[in-house]
Simulated assay, not measured.
Amino acid sequence: MSAREVRLRPVTEDDLGMFRRFVTEPGLIGLDWAGFRDAQAPARRYAKDGFLGEDDSRLIVEADGTAAGLVSWSARGFGVSRYWETGIALLPDWRGRGIGWRAQAMLCDYLFTHTPVERVQAITHPENVAEQKSLEKAGFTFEGVLRAVEFLRGQWRDGWMYSRLRSDPYPLNP
């Protein structure tokens, strides 16, 4: 069953419980679990800038009026050029319902509308087939393998790089 309405919105104080869960509940964030993190860090970040920073930010993914997860973007650069690297984390009950790809397409549209970047990229795990399909449906193109790019669960792991350019066609029916 898919969600009828998906939208992105700024983080509110009520969302901080979900953020704390992502850093303290093993496995909740899926393959990206990298160990326990400071449970008070989300409240400090919210107090600082509401998770809307100049170089990295978060928005809540809302599905049918309920906070289903978050999307993020961080500034990266190559030479003098700047681009965004994005991510998404959905709560388990909201996965597999067509929310992720729509949220990622909406985030790209938001970033291309409000920032002058030409490129948005995302990296996922080779075994995360659902995320690969989601990125492709959201208009991203597979670019290749980044060898040994991440240390996770005691070993160096590859990442799969995807990108979407401002000039790429917008996905249908996000």
Rank of each mutant, 00 (worst) to 15 (best):
M1K: 12
A3E: 11
A3H: 11
E5S: 14
R7T: 14
P10A: 14
D14P: 00
F22E: 02
F36D: 13
A39V: 12
Q40G: 15
P42T: 07
A43R: 15
A43E: 15
R44W: 11
R44L: 13
Y46S: 07
Y46N: 06
K48R: 15
G50H: 07
F51G: 00
F51K: 04
G69K: 08
V71A: 01
V71F: 02
S72P: 00
W73A: 04
W73P: 01
R76N: 07
R76L: 04
F78E: 14
W84C: 03
T86H: 01
A89K: 12
L90V: 07
P92L: 08
R97M: 10
I99M: 06
A103F: 01
A103I: 00
Q104E: 14
Q104I: 01
M106V: 00
L111R: 05
F112R: 04
F112S: 04
T115F: 06
V117Q: 08
E118W: 10
Q121G: 05
T124N: 01
H125Q: 11
H125F: 14
P126G: 06
N128H: 10
K133N: 14
S134W: 04
E136I: 10
A138D: 04
G139N: 04
F142T: 00
E143S: 01
L146S: 07
F151K: 08
D158R: 07
D158Q: 02
G159M: 05
G159P: 01
S163H: 09
R164Q: 01
S167W: 06
S167L: 05
D168Q: 01
P169G: 02
Y170M: 11
P174E: 04
